[in-house]
Design a protein around this nucleic acid. Sequence first.
DNA 1: GACTTAGTTTCAGATAATGGAACCAAACGG
DNA 2: CCGTTTGGTTCCATTATCTGAAACTAAGTC
Lengths: 261, 261
Amino acid sequence: MGAEGHSDGTVGKALDVLDLVARQGAPVRFSDLMAQTDYPKATLYRLLQTLTNQGMLALDPDTGAYALGMRLVRLAHAAWAQSSLAPIARPYLDELAEKTGETIHLAQMDQGQVLYVDKRNAAKPVEMFAQAGKVGPAYCTGVGKAMLAWTAPEALDQALARQSFYRHTDQTLDTPEKLLAELKAIRARGHAFDREEHEKGIICCAVPILTRSGRVLGALSVTSTTARTTLEALEGQAGLIKDIAAKIAAEAESWRFPEQN
Amino acid sequence: MGAEGHSDGTVGKALDVLDLVARQGAPVRFSDLMAQTDYPKATLYRLLQTLTNQGMLALDPDTGAYALGMRLVRLAHAAWAQSSLAPIARPYLDELAEKTGETIHLAQMDQGQVLYVDKRNAAKPVEMFAQAGKVGPAYCTGVGKAMLAWTAPEALDQALARQSFYRHTDQTLDTPEKLLAELKAIRARGHAFDREEHEKGIICCAVPILTRSGRVLGALSVTSTTARTTLEALEGQAGLIKDIAAKIAAEAESWRFPEQN
DNA sequence: GACTTAGTTTCAGATAATGGAACCAAACGG
DNA sequence: CCGTTTGGTTCCATTATCTGAAACTAAGTC
């Protein structure tokens, strides 16, 4: 707690509070929030009022509990539709899912963390919203490492500083040094693996989605289990995954920036 | 334009800008935004900077265009999961969809507008996120009228003031008076109809989702076409819909407010 | 090479945020 | 039943923050 950093102005504080409410996972009352922040009573109170006025929060009149507001859901729709790769990538994910029969993840980087923006499940039909929006660690997932490998130096430093390097399994790369060496290897190879680094028995092969100028837009991965397949077999799909990633990148560039001269 | 109203402070302005970006539907450059707002250059600039710092917006370094940021997607996920009825209602929607074979809508009220938070399509499998988050008018949809009918007087006034009463079809209730009369009838009947008021050929039967204390949480509807069925046939489902709505309400109350004594 | 156009920075003044403290209401306890 | 604690809301003088005209820089254009 307390390591919030250099919040910019009132807006920053308001958004802090918004995050705080989001983190709870359930509606919270004033005093609960009060206990979790350093803001003085009156300040927190006004912040909450403002956010509620604005529809970013909703105050349940029965219980006096604050919950995230509907305006956020509306914004979310727009965010997902316009700024994530998901809508563009959808048909390609379908294609990849069908060809591989495995679980597919589409991810983007968010403040040093991996944000899953879409997903295809091996067995079950899609479960959007419930899955997309989830975040995960960057240093020990295939998509995370794929994105980091092509991230520019300064941004990479910032991202590295945000990694916990928690040792999820005995394969986890648990220091920046190990990770940097791995990133170099990934750049050379063109794709990243997850060698059960995040979860025992789960492996994946991931590739970055890059603009022509070499900037990272996101990453795409095919995930499976050691029970079902091997890393080598997954690597056999690397070419296919790269092709799909390239198609997504191409479409992203032509769609999202139509007015490029 | 400029009928923004009584924005509260800097936060309000920042959120205005956020909405503005969201409204565009695609990444926009500074000058495009500049043209659409009354804020002076420097002010808009600083607001955009702040929002970008905070991860609510993302500035594409190649094109200099602002898009909605990933932090928003993350917040959105939380909003949907924690504060909408959708996660609670999911299994019940499935049940209702299966029993009726028709399109199901789950909606909540957001600033006088109907916000669809989940949906089951008659034919195709679920398309979340792509569908949920959409907004629609309240005065001429089944779910909208169902919610308005049980809305407390002052809130109702506010909501009515926000309706456009645009005449979508010749069945549209295009004045507050007609609507109020209809709301009375709906309260008496216990469920609302959409008699092709929004779109020709589209009809529905909707019921409110109410807390024990009588507060509106949302609404649930079964939608069909005049080609496939009739209003009378739909009304035959009203009992079923009400049962499902009651279950959702019950679960919402016990789940979202577990600490009620 | 002068002239737009697009984006960024400055700075004194205006405004809005701050937070300690007082206040109110409801639940609690004796 | 009344004093007290808990939970939430309002006041208001102080001060930090936001404001926005204008100056400035960096790229295009002609």
